[in-house]
Design a protein around this nucleic acid. Structure first.
Lengths: 142, 142
DNA sequence: ATCGCTGCAAACACTTTGCATCCAC
DNA sequence: GTGGATGCAAAGTGTTTGCAGCGAT
């Protein structure tokens, strides 16, 4: 939350309970939730919270670099409060999204510069597969 | 189009003019168009074509592996008739999407297996940057 | 002739916007 | 006190679906 205050002050953004709740919720999960999921979670404690506010807050947080949007190809966005470069893996069965933090993929940005005339600024890498839990339930259903 | 006939016959899918038009249009462009763009292009020659048919056709083509969906994070899907593994680069200025075909990124699937308990099946890599055309127009506007 | 495909319109899911009220500063 | 934020509802996108008529096999 100190993160929030520090980032908000110079932009004269207001530190509202709703914004704090959205950011704290994201900080405390590894699930990369969608706006809808964030809304449903927070609503339990902030019954007045509206989905539009969640969207507006996420957009604000993204603009100041505290949150990043993920798009794993489901047709909606997921959000991640880890803004360090890292890749993600999606379970093709249950749709879960996990971080992949330790694999160093930073060299691919360098590698690709030899093959394009674009100025390369960033990259997003998504892996797809089957998570351990779904592998286990596969076995039991066979 | 022989591709189409060959892929359709065993699945008893019908080879309609609309489906041919969608697939040929995708085969003849490098622009990774959205469904809407495909629709607008084809409509000139097939005025009766409907957007719903474009969507249905793209879904069918994807299911039989003749087309792949791209999701560069715009909130819609783009389509690519090149189903060989390759990555894409998106211009942050004009939104253009280009193929990156020569950079060998296949090793990242192997690399990531050391860092996850998922069974890794596939990956999607998107680079973001500025395309040569937009770099040039930047200079002239400065 | 059959069964799948088309095309229209309506429905849907996700996200954004307008605006009156509210509250952090 | 003021200007930005909230929350509702309505509108906007992109995509999917239902169904009657059509057309490829």
């Amino acid at each position: 939350m100190n993160n929030l205050a520090a980032a908000f002050k110079p932009k004269s953004l207001k530190l509202t309970p709703q914004r704090i709740a959205v950011y704290e919720m994201l900080k405390n999960t590894k699930a990369h939730p969608s706006a809808e999921t964030i809304y449903n979670t927070i609503k339990e404690q902030y019954p007045t919270m509206s989905l539009a506010t969640v969207y507006k807050t996420l957009k604000t947080l993204e603009e100041i670099g505290l949150v990043m949007e993920l798009n794993v190809g489901e047709g909606n966005f997921r959000y991640d409060s880890n803004t360090q470069p890292h890749s993600h893996i999606v379970c093709n069965k249950c749709g879960k999204v996990d971080d992949i933090e330790d694999a160093d993929l930073s060299h691919i940005n360098e590698a690709v510069k030899k093959h394009t005339e674009y100025t390369v600024l960033s990259s997003k890498v998504y892996f797809y597969g089957i998570c351990p839990e779904c592998k286990t339930s596969d076995e039991s259903s066979n």
